[in-house]
């Protein structure tokens, strides 16, 4: 399953987030929970949670249905030095 998710991220997700200088990788898959890490322009990006919830999670559910419980972001967004959209007030 982890390999399938990795492949989906590489073929369906990362080609698009790379246009914002970002990348999303799977760290683990345990009991239906997908642990991911964002880097580059995604790390610290103000839109990262929208990308994750509305884009990545939705796409994973469409492909794998109930096998996906939750997508959990392990990224240290505070350390993102080059976010595509820097959060502000």
């Amino acid at each position: 399953m982890r390999r399938k998710i990795m492949k989906l991220l590489q073929t369906e997700i990362n080609p698009y987030v790379s246009s914002h200088g970002g990348s999303i990788d799977i760290e683990d898959f345990v009991d239906g929970n997908v642990y991911i890490r964002m880097s580059g322009g995604c790390q610290g990006c103000g839109a990262a949670s929208v990308t994750l919830k509305q884009g990545v999670e939705k796409t994973l559910r469409e492909h794998f249905g109930d096998k996906i419980k939750e997508v959990i972001d392990l990224t240290d967004h505070g350390a993102g030095s080059d976010p595509y959209y820097a959060p502000s007030k």
């Binding site: 997700i13 914002h20 990308t51 509305q54 990545v56 939705k58 595509y84 959209y85």
Partner: peptide, 10 residues
Amino acid sequence: RRNALEHLTG
């Protein structure tokens, strides 16, 4: 602003 995955969000 446009999200990178907008086209995947239905």
